[in-house]
């Protein structure tokens, strides 16, 4: 049977649009709130990425850092992240969820224990920002054994030979980083150029679902709709921060953004 992640891409394809992937930080702004946000946006998102926050996130820009620090300050623990995922999956059985974070959290929890837990709560995929290829090969195999998609990242700096190897060893989905940047940077490369590079990667193996992330906002999303999927993270985290600042309902505001994002790629 195809994985839920694969199915999500197929469903989007049937509607001739890219899949919409959202990223929120578990526990932002509180455990309860983040679950509400997740459930609410999943009516519009095809795949939900859920970050397990780290306090030294070397590849994240200001918006996601703020969300991560806020969640940690409000007491989120890794076991809470699992119970959040579990709660979410109970009500949204077919919605794929991807956990994303930094390797030290997994290392301290113990790799096998972490992955068993992911399997138990029905996590569909994992992205580990600072565990690159080929060092991640063993870990990726462990994921596969448990039916979890390990999502490889590729970037504009990834060499041709390396790209080939990564794609060969990848599972259902790959994540293309649009530009040299941390998350939430301003799109400094033209969408045309990004799509050119993207199609070169896509050509290597058409059966793989490749999403584009970094710098995607309400303004830029439409220009990249040729991709299999598009990830929006910082723009959402920013909206949570803004809602808190303005004392508005973050669930409604974030849902509205995701709704608008979805409408732009229909």
């Amino acid at each position: 049977m195809a994985s839920l992640i694969n199915q999500a891409f197929q469903n989007a394809k049937k509607e001739s649009r890219p899949a919409l992937l959202t990223y929120t930080v578990a526990g932002d702004s509180t455990k309860k709130k983040s679950l509400e946000i997740l459930k609410s946006i999943s009516d519009y998102a095809d795949i939900c990425e859920l970050g397990f926050p780290h306090n030294t996130p070397i590849a994240d820009g200001g918006q996601i850092q703020t969300s991560a620090y806020r969640a940690i300050k409000n007491g989120i623990k890794i076991n809470d992240v699992f119970s959040l995922a579990n709660d979410f999956k109970k009500s949204k059985k077919t919605k794929p969820i991807i956990l994303m974070g930094y390797y030290n959290m997994i290392f301290q929890y113990n790799e096998n224990k972490f992955l068993d837990k992911c399997k138990n709560v029905k996590v569909d995929g994992l992205i580990v920002v600072d565990l690159p290829y080929p060092e991640n090969k063993k870990f990726a195999t462990k994921c596969k054994k448990r039916g979890i998609n390990f999502i490889q990242l590729v970037s504009p700096t990834t060499s041709k030979i390396r790209l080939k190897k990564i794609i060969k060893d990848s599972h259902d989905m790959l994540y293309y980083i649009s530009m040299l940047s941390t998350t939430g940077g301003k799109l400094k490369v033209s969408p045309k150029k990004i799509l050119e590079r993207y199609s070169k990667i896509k050509k290597q193996n058409k059966s793989k679902n490749i999403v584009i992330g970094f710098g995607i906002t309400e303004k830029t999303i439409k220009s990249l709709k040729k991709a299999d999927g598009l990830v929006v993270g910082s723009a959402i985290c920013k909206e949570i921060s803004n809602s808190i600042k303005k004392r508005q309902n973050a669930v409604t505001n974030v849902t509205n953004i995701v709704k608008r994002l979805k409408n732009k790629i229909k």
């Binding site: 690159p132 290829y133 060092e135 970037s155 700096t157 990834t158 980083i177």
Partner: peptide, 21 residues
């Protein structure tokens, strides 16, 4: 080969973008 001393210290836990540089 993977950059570890005593097979457990060091290494290169870096984001993909930094692999090439």
């Amino acid at each position: 080969q993977e950059g570890f001393w005593g097979s457990k210290f060091g290494g290169s836990f870096i984001p993909e973008t930094l692999k090439k540089p």
